[in-house]
Design a protein around this nucleic acid. Structure first.
Length: 698
DNA sequence: TACAGTCGGGG
DNA sequence: GTGTACGACTGTA
């Protein structure tokens, strides 16, 4: 028997039996291995039906009777079915016996593999081999290790010289650790031959592309792009779905075998936390890197819950797929019970401290043992959700500690930040999943329990602050803004932090002390303020803002840029009283910006507005700017789908908007409209101060 | 004026 | 192969 150590790089199911593993061995070799893996599912329900299913399955799978735990129903008598081949027996079974309860039937193969072997993806392992057949596998890494030995990847980047949706690219940029160069894409045959040669020669583990999913990979169908010679590229169709409060469009996908392909332009969270973040999520969730790059963190946390279930002997119910639409009355009544919101005190204030609960919802779930099955019980046993979250929470905290000890310029900082952000998203989404009707281990009541506890904690924090003589100016879900005459340095607030931690037992953080902060009035009614909208300057000179135009993605860059310049100008004031002295400068900045716009000195790119399509073009009853842009695109024969972003500029005349990629003539820009948007954005910042000057008063 | 459509959060 | 709900705001007619 041979022994090999190395990094586990890829796992997928073999067409006939077991799984295929790819390993980057310590020798540098890329090994393709095979391993047997039992696939077991459980059936429960009506006894007669179970008997019929037994007869149906006899000879096709190994069968046994046993007892297993359902998270909600407890112990159940079940039929254990162990498949002997990777075929779609389960689907046949399901269509034959739809009313039986199926468990563990739709668990991704990588998760089964991990639960069975105890290894982690991208981790170091020791393999005992009989030829290429794995006899035994030993984990040398844990997903909870803080600084695992990095998997030594060979990466190749492929990017076209234009966006293929609008202009046919003529050249492809190839970038590797050894340098970069271009390949001409026409004529096609020499292009393919050349790229094939480069692939063979460099043999990348990772192919990182722009527009690879929908455009490049389909062109490469005739060359060997996969490392596994027995497998062809797997394609998945484009789709639109509703999530995160909006319609999201995901383009077609191309997955490789024995090699990863990630399309940066079609990877949902890639801009958020990059390859390092995706790999971190892959390690802790057990979802392969190619999948993880294209899926939402929700899929990741679901996978983690499944792993916890498999490890603790809880059966995983089939994915509930409930119909969209009609909400129950109970649901509507429940709807308005979210986090605690306390209307901000209108206007400008000096020396305000912002205090945040760190990872509030996940912390509540862990510290208060909130889980769908522990609800209403005083069970000392840790629930499935807290069990899943606890190591995640700890790891993120440790990463952040590590970060705070490092110098900002340290090359590790970027990587650690990406990894911490990736973990944070898993934590954030876990809360949403508790209340999600299609979640496997969700229950709306546990979701409510979390928000109820959070409101209670916030009230406790408020009381603690008031007892110490602080005034609470604003509370929003997990942060509070407090003020006390004479206190202006971070350390002045230490006793308060102490008191709050003492009360709530949940970790809190001092965000900073504002030299001044403004809670601006609502536009409909100047007498009231708006929750979670503010701008101000911290003691260290840093500006901070929420809810204003600069935070919105549907505001042109030019407007956001000037709004921030204005805010930074106001931030030059040493104290609140001096802010008014800077108003003339602001007025001049704005007129200069408008002159630049009229004289054509503003790059057109900075005027582009991006808006997402919430529905199909036919679905619109009133033409929003994005809908007009979509119609323009359709008129040129291009397809548009819900969730896609429309990029356009405002123009004069009937058209109103012009799609950016179709080319924009500077002469037709709607200068008036842009000036109006700018005025709105700036007046939102300065109005409060102007009124003060006129004696209207704060 | 009413209605339809879009966005936010975190770091 | 997918967190939700809701309120502020803008654009349109």
């Amino acid at each position: 028997m041979d022994e090999v150590t190395g990094w586990l790089f890829d796992v997928y199911s073999h067409p006939e039996r077991g799984v295929v593993l790819w390993v980057i061995a310590d020798s540098g070799e890329r090994l393709r291995l095979r391993m047997e893996l039992p696939v077991t599912i459980y059936l429960a329900g009506d006894f007669k039906l179970l008997r019929a299913a037994w007869i149906f399955l006899t000879g096709k799978a190994e069968l046994a009777r046993t007892k297993r735990r359902d998270l909600f129903l407890g112990e159940r008598d079940v039929m254990q079915v162990t498949l002997t081949e990777n075929n779609d027996l389960i689907h046949g079974l399901q269509s034959q016996f739809p009313s039986l309860d199926y468990y563990d039937a739709d668990v991704p193969i990588t998760l089964r593999f991990i639960a069975h072997t105890g290894v982690c993806l991208l981790g170091r392992c020791r393999f005992m081999l009989e030829r290429e057949q794995v006899q035994f596998i030993q984990a040398l890494d844990s997903p909870w290790q803080l600084s695992p030995e990095q998997i030594p990847l060979r990466a190749m980047e492929l990017s076209p010289n234009s966006d293929p949706a609008f202009r046919t690219p003529t050249r492809l940029k190839v970038k590797t650790g050894r340098g970069e160069y271009f390949i001409n894409m026409e004529p096609e045959r020499p292009f393919l031959i050349s790229l094939q040669a480069d692939l063979r020669h460099f043999d990348p583990d990772l192919i990182l592309t722009d527009h690879g999913d929908g455009w490049l990979m389909p062109k490469l169908a005739d060359i060997e792009i996969n490392r596994d010679p027995d497998r062809a590229t797997q394609t998945r169709k484009a789709n639109s779905y509703f999530a995160y409060g909006q319609t999201i469009h995901r383009g077609a996908q191309s997955h490789l075998f024995g090699r990863w392909h990630i399309d940066r332009k079609n990877a949902m969270m890639f801009n958020e936390y990059g390859l390092e973040g995706v790999m971190e999520q892959s390690r802790v969730t057990g979802i392969g890197v190619q999948e993880m790059a294209r899926k939402s963190p929700g899929a990741g946390i679901t996978a983690m819950q499944m792993l916890t279930a498999m490890k603790t002997g809880v059966m995983i119910p089939l994915h509930k797929q409930q119909a969209e639409g009609s909400k129950t009355l109970a649901g509507l009544i429940r709807a308005d019970k979210g986090g605690l919101i306390y209307q901000p005190t209108l206007g400008v204030h000096r020396d305000v401290a912002q205090i945040d609960f760190a990872s509030m919802y996940p912390s509540i779930m862990v510290y208060h043992n909130v889980s769908p099955e522990t609800l209403g019980k005083n069970d000392p046993k840790q629930g499935l959700i807290p069990q899943t979250l606890s190591p995640l929470l700890k790891k993120r905290l440790k990463l952040k500690e590590l970060l705070s000890d490092l110098d900002e310029r340290d090359c590790q900082v970027k990587v650690l930040k990406q990894r911490a952000a990736a973990l944070k998203w898993l934590l954030v989404v876990c809360f949403g999943y508790l209340g999600y009707k299609n979640a496997r281990f969700g229950k709306i009541e546990s979701h409510e329990a979390v928000t109820a506890i959070s409101r209670e904690l916030m009230l406790q924090a408020k009381e603690a602050a008031e007892e110490l003589g602080f005034e609470v100016l604003h509370m929003y879900v997990d942060s509070l803004f407090v003020q006390k005459e004479g206190l202006k340095e971070k350390q002045d607030f230490e006793p308060l932090l102490h008191a709050i931690t003492e009360q709530t037992k949940i970790p809190i953080m001092m965000e900073g002390v504002y030299r001044w902060i403004c809670f601006p009035p609502c536009k409909r009614d100047a007498r009231i303020s708006v929750p979670n909208r503010y701008f101000g300057v911290l003691n260290n000179g840093e500006v901070k803002y929420r809810g204003i135009e600069a935070r919105r993605r549907d505001v042109p860059f030019w407007v956001k840029k000037i709004q921030l310049e204005v805010l930074n100008c106001l931030a030059k004031a040493k104290s609140l009283d001096e802010v008014v002295d800077y108003l003339p400068e602001v007025t001049e900045m704005v007129s200069q910006a408008k002159r630049d716009l009229r004289n054509g000195h503003v790059p057109l790119k900075e005027l582009v507005v991006a808006q997402s399509l919430s529905r199909t073009v036919e679905g619109y009853t009133s033409p929003s700017p994005a809908a007009r842009a979509a119609m323009q695109l359709q008129a040129t024969g291009r397809e548009v789908a819900p969730g896609q972003f429309m990029r356009f500029v405002f123009v004069r005349g009937q058209e109103r908007v012009r799609v950016w990629e179709l080319g924009v003539d500077e002469k037709i820009i709607d200068v008036k409209r842009y000036c109006a948007i700018l005025d709105r954005a700036v007046s939102g910042l300065v109005n409060v101060f102007e009124k003060t000057e006129a004696g209207l008063g704060i």
